[in-house]
Amino acid sequence: MKLAIANPRTSKENKTGDWRSFKPIVHTENCIKCGTCASYCPEGCISGVDKKNIQEREFPKIDYDYCKGCGICANECPKKTIEMVQEEK
């Protein structure tokens, strides 16, 4: 019998990045790797800066396959170092 059950995390096949009309760009020169952007991202698509140990952290890396361009990361960044730029074709 074959069960109609979806496999874990298969939502990753949905590339929701194509919803985006504004794209967040991280200007790393002012970034303090606080992780606020990654914490508040509804998509959970910001990595690098999400490690517990601050020494191991890299600058935020946004996975544009999933980023919907909501702008929360740019709005919440305490250093205002994320810029929302209009997408172009």
Partner: peptide, 13 residues
């Protein structure tokens, strides 16, 4: 995981 289809900026995820 990412790829869920909540609206951009949704507070629930």
């Amino acid at each position: 995981a990412s790829g869920h289809t909540a609206c951009a900026g949704c507070g629930m995820p």
